[in-house]
Amino acid sequence: MSATTSTPTSPTSSARAMAWSRRAASAREFWREFRHYKAGMIGLGILAVIIILAILAPVLAPTRMLDLTQLLQSPRYAPPSWAHPFGTDDQGRELWVRMLWGSRVSLVVGFAATAMSMIIGTIIGIAAGHFTGWVGGLLMRIVDFFLVLPSLILAIVLSSVLERGVMTIVIAIGLTSWAGTARVVRSQTLSIESRDYVERARVLGGGHWHIIFKHLLPAVMPLVLANTTLTVGSAIIAESTLSFLGLGDPSKQSWGTILKNSMDLSAATSGYWWYVLIPGLAILLVVLAFTLVGRAVETIVNPTLRSR
């Protein structure tokens, strides 16, 4: 009869399992609180529908529906009807097809530019709050410089200098919209630096990397998450503005490009109202949805707002 032996669990793996357990519990608690905000749930539902439609665009609207050689018999400037739900454009293309494909570009640019902005802003904000002396002062002067400069003007300059394309718009928006996040993260970092557990870690010999990654970064991430949901809407508006100004990729469908096409054809004054109204309402709806979700997240992660 052999005795069953069990492998002892190492302290490191046990601590890691406990950390993941706490994170999972925090995520469940966050979702329970988020469900109580009706506006946030409405915004989340709208975003879920739009994202699903954008993912299914190749299935719902194959690229052949945008091929001008196959649309020779399609009516131009057809108003919305059962046959043409969103109407057609000046080349006979169904506007709902262009809107569906345009949502992919607008959402990709919004998420990618926001991710770049959040990464840059978080890194510089934590560094400016953690490091004292000339390093922190220099970083704050850089942040102040980008805060003073109009981000849209700088994005237009970058888009004009670099090669036109979706990646160029992502870089232009991401490199010009991080300063606000950096200032917010720095303020939160300064508050966390004064707490007892950070002082204790410093006294026990914790280095800069240990304090940043073990204490500062986890503490500022909820604030960064709330700021991210609010920034995506601004990034989508910036992408639409750049495309509307003719700085986007003309070979890609986006909501800003559709608005530019309608402006070039004077659709608003020629009676083709659907050509202007539908993409404008789509941009408004997506930005509103991100704002509703962002406000709900901000209320949950900010105890001051939650208590009101």
Rank of each mutant, 00 (worst) to 15 (best):
T4C: 02
R16T: 13
A19R: 14
A27Q: 13
E29C: 06
F30S: 02
W31N: 09
R32M: 10
R35V: 11
K38I: 13
K38S: 14
M41W: 11
G43I: 08
I50T: 10
L53T: 12
A54P: 05
A57M: 02
T63E: 13
M65G: 03
L66S: 10
D67M: 09
Q70G: 10
Q73W: 07
S74W: 06
P75T: 13
R76D: 08
Y77N: 14
A78K: 03
S81H: 06
W82Q: 13
A83Q: 15
H84L: 08
R93G: 10
R98P: 04
R98I: 06
M99W: 06
L100H: 05
L100Q: 02
G102Q: 03
S103P: 02
S106F: 09
V108Y: 12
V108W: 11
V109Y: 03
G110T: 09
F111P: 00
A112H: 00
A112M: 10
I119Y: 06
I120L: 13
G121P: 02
I124S: 01
I124L: 09
G125R: 04
I126S: 01
G129I: 01
F131Y: 12
W134Y: 12
V135W: 03
V135Q: 02
V135G: 03
G136F: 00
L138W: 08
F146H: 10
V148H: 01
L149A: 14
I153D: 09
L154V: 13
V161R: 07
E163D: 14
R164F: 12
G165Q: 03
M167A: 13
I169G: 01
V170Y: 07
A172H: 07
T176H: 06
S177L: 04
L190Q: 09
S191N: 11
V203C: 07
V203L: 14
V203P: 07
G206M: 01
G206R: 00
G207H: 01
I211W: 01
I212M: 09
I212Q: 00
F213S: 12
K214F: 04
H215Y: 12
P218T: 11
P218W: 07
P222R: 06
L225D: 06
T229R: 02
A235D: 09
A235Q: 03
T241A: 15
F244Y: 15
L247I: 08
G248L: 11
D249G: 09
D249P: 04
K252V: 14
Q253D: 11
G256N: 09
K260E: 14
S262W: 04
D264Y: 05
L265R: 14
S266M: 13
A268Q: 12
Y272L: 08
L277D: 05
I283W: 00
L288P: 04
E298F: 10
N302M: 04
T304H: 11
